[in-house]
Structure formats: C-alpha cells, structure tokens
Design a protein around this nucleic acid. Structure first.
Length: 422
RNA sequence: GUGGGCGUAGCUCAGCUGGUUAGAGCACCGGGUUGUGGCCCCGGAGGCCGCGGGUUCAAGUCCCGUCGCUCACCCCA
C-alpha cells in the first residue's frame, strides 16, 4: 500500500533539527524580553478580506498565493500568508491602542503561501515576527533594526548584508511612481516580466534580476530624490542612528517591498549562502495600515525573520543540545525495581534520566546508553544492591567509581553543575 | 503557472556501450564466553531499481507517459 506523504511544500522538522529551532526561538524570546516586546499568539486562520485589504489586491500574495477556502458556514477564510495584518487586526479588535507607550509585540509560527516550492521557500514556512505600533520616531526604526541585529548576532550568524531604503510616504510614492513610469515608457528593451510590471507595479521593475533591465535602470530616477522634506529627514536620521549603533548597512535605493502597506523605512537582511531566496529577514514601516484596517491613524514598524531560511545558514554547531543525561543500567529483576524509583528521583532533581525496561545484557545497555548520548551511566547489579552502592561511569572519560545509592542524586547533580561551569 | 536536473536498501550513492541470483559505505540486528559503550573483526536482515505502458530473445539500463523530489524563473521571509 502506498504511504501517505506530507502535502507538497510542507515538511516535518525532526530531532535533532527541532532542537536547533528551539534554540533560535529561545534566543529571539530572550532578546525580545530585553527590549520590552511581548508575545502574541494569534489564529492561523483569518477572514480573507483582512489580507485583501492590507496586503493589496494586486500583489502576488493575494492574487495567486493564498490558501483560501469557504468554510462550512459559507465564509471565505484564509490561512495567514503573513503576520502584520493579523497583528493589527488583533490590536484593534482587543482595543490594545489604549495601552501605554509604544505597543511592542512579537509572534512566531507558521505562515502559508501556495507557491512552487524551492530552496528556502515552502508552502508552510515559519516566521518570527516583531511589530511596534504607535510611534513614527526614526529612533524606533533604528532600535528595532538594532534588536534584529542583536538576535542574528546571538545566533552567531555572519556574512549577512543589511540593505536599507526609504519608500517615502504615499505622497512621495505618488510622485516617484509618476516619474518612474515616465522613464519606463521612454525606454525600450525591457524583459517580458518588466513590460507587465511597468503597468501593474512599476516599483518592482527596480529589483528585476535580468541583466539588460539592470543596465537600463542605471539612469532611472531614484526614490530618494522624490522624498518629501519630512520623509527625507526621517530617513537620514535612521541612517545616522544605525551608524551610531555600529551596524554595517548598505543603502539600496532600488529596494522595494512586495506588500502595499509599506512606507518610509524598508529593509532586508540577505545571506549569500541561500541561493535565489536570499532574504533572511525583511521589514519596515507601515504608517497607513492601521487606519486602512479601520483603526486610528497610528504608525507602525516591524519585521519578519524567515525562520526556515535562518536555520539553513545557522552554523552547524549552534543550537545542538548538550548531552547531560543519565542512563540507569539495571542487572536483574530486583535491580530493575530499584532503578524504577531511582530514575524518578533523578528526574525530580532536574536531571534527564532514562533506563531500559527490557532486561538486556549490560553490554547491550551500555551500547544503548552510548547511542542515546548519555553523559553518565549508573550501573546497579546484585553486588551493588547488596552493598547499598551503585557504580557511576563517566561516558566521556571512561572512568567510574562506586558510591552509596543514597548519594547518587547529589553526586550526579554536582557532576552536571561542574560540567555546566565549563 | 513556465523551464532544467534527478528518482536504485533507512541515508549517501555505484551499476560500463541492454545480458545470469542488483552492489558499496554509513545506520540497524546478532556474535567475538563470565557484569561495561565507542575502535576493530565476523555474520545477518533489509530493494515490485517511483509508477504505468512500449521496444527487445532479454530492460535498473533504451523510448513514451505519469507521479514525486529538486533547482531556477515569477514572487517573497
């Protein structure tokens, strides 16, 4: 019978890889805590109109990549393709704007987009999201980017590039789009995709990968020149702060974002090792979004880390759990009985402890302990039982000694603590 | 949605121009004597060669189709 396979574009995350995921998430949580960000846990399913209204009907995400279906009640619902829209929805629905100061949230979990899978792109993929609502200060932009940088740094990621740009406010964008369109239609030789883009979404021509388009774009108008006074000041303040924070960044005047709601600061973190899908994180400011979704006119800033991609560039050695576990090897029936309670005592003391119930030979149990990655093995046979002792073996060094059974718990705790100190 | 590459053991892969019972390394199970893992030695189990059809005396090998994986385009985290 043919086995049932996972749905296309969706993958299982298994040990030991899952431990690396935990480590990434734990690290991010810790940094979020330091900066005052608190966790939001939101549904995977939202009403379809939420994404249509926020992301933009003409974007690819909404036009052809959403998992949308009609539920049993006849409502159109969609598996979230990104997080910002639903964070804003929850923010408004729960009246969180009444809170004090800048509202800072993070969220992690799966997102869904119906795309053709490839390296670094899955139909169910994971994001670590961060959103700060309620301030338009350039200091906030810079601080959030700094926080992202802190997370990436703690994860020992290197060879990353931070690309920054400003998309301006809707007025600047209007002005720029007009100039750009004029330019695009005054030149010949665009690739077929760009011929389409210059009609539908001219900004996207700017990051076309085709060689000929790039050549043509060299004389294209630059967003920066179309920024209004206020947007321009905001942008340069952000850049100054990033410099002060000692963050290496590159201005990327052609960086645009695929979602309609972005304004002013936009940024992306890329990793060359990833191949075509090289953005590990991306984000920016979205000053009109909250009002667009029916709320007050509040500004917002946020980013998303592509967790799957991040894991691909995470150094191999990082995030592996250290082996600190104990294996109890019992010889004979009565020893096994004694071990059953001992193993629980160890766990009660916070030590990871396991044993075998099948009455295998000591050799087999030692071998098992080794393969399970036990750091220490405690051996209990008739001889030890009679003497009230137990043998503790260090699996790394191979040395072992006999101690009182009563002292097992404290002895192992000391060993584990000593290990931790190194 | 479009294009390229690839489907042989749990994993990574050999298998020459079609020719007998399809191989290796790693992993797994057992053994190398009495109560001690890793290393070494010996043995074992494990494959409708993705699936369907065709050509042929003969197909893992050639042809067609199909499904899947993968990389790239598109788009994005």
């Amino acid at each position: 019978m043919a086995l049932i396979r996972a749905v296309r574009g969706m993958k299982d995350i298994l040990p030991p890889e899952s431990e690396r995921w935990q480590w990434v998430e734990t690290t991010a949580r810790e940094v979020f805590r330091l900066y005052g960000y608190r966790e939001l846990r939101l549904p995977l399913l939202e009403r379809t109109e939420l994404f249509a209204r926020s992301i933009g009907t003409d974007t690819d995400i909404v036009a052809k990549e959403m998992y949308t279906f009609i539920d049993r009640h006849g409502d159109s619902v969609t598996l979230r393709p990104e997080a910002t829209a639903q964070v804003v929805r929850a923010f408004l629905e729960n009246r969180l704007e009444k809170g004090a100061g800048v509202k800072k949230y993070f969220l992690m979990g799966p997102m869904f987009r119906y795309e053709r899978p490839q390296k670094g792109r899955y139909r169910q993929f994971y994001q670590i999201n961060c959103e700060a609502l309620g301030s338009d200060a350039p200091e906030l932009d810079a601080e959030v980017i700094l926080m992202l940088w802190e997370i990436l740094g703690r994860l020992k990621l290197s060879n990353l590039r931070l690309l920054v740009n400003s998309l301006g406010c809707p007025e600047c964008q209007e002005d720029f789009k007009a100039k750009l369109k004029l330019f695009l239609f005054s030149r010949e030789g665009w690739c077929p995709d760009c011929l389409r883009r210059r009609e539908v979404n001219p900004l996207r021509v700017l990051d076309c990968k085709s060689q000929t388009c790039r050549e043509l774009l060299k004389t294209a108008p630059v967003l920066k020149d179309s920024l209004c006074e206020a947007c321009s000041r905001h942008y340069s303040r952000v850049l100054t702060l990033l410099e002060q924070f000692g963050i290496d960044f590159e201005e990327q005047p052609r960086l645009v974002r695929g979602l309609d709601y972005y304004t002013r600061t936009a940024f992306e973190v890329t990793a060359a090792a990833l191949g075509a899908q090289d953005a590990v994180a991306g984000g920016g400011r979205y000053n009109g979004l909250i009002r667009e979704l029916g709320g007050p006119d509040l500004p917002g800033f946020g980013f998303a880390i592509g967790e799957d991609r991040l894991l691909e560039v995470l150094p191999e050695a990082e995030g592996r759990s250290a082996d600190q576990s104990v294996f109890l090897a019992a010889l004979g029936r009565s020893a096994l009985e004694r071990c059953l309670t001992l193993v629980q005592e160890l766990r009660g003391a916070g030590l990871a402890a396991e044993m075998d119930f099948d009455g295998r030979s000591l050799k087999a149990q030692m071998s098992l302990a080794d393969r399970l990655g036990a750091r220490w093995v405690a051996i209990l046979g008739d001889r030890e039982l009679a003497a009230g002792e137990i043998v503790v073996r260090d699996m790394k060094s191979g040395s072992q000694e006999s101690i009182r059974i009563m002292e097992l718990k404290s002895a192992l705790k000391n060993l584990a603590a000593a290990e931790e100190g190194n």
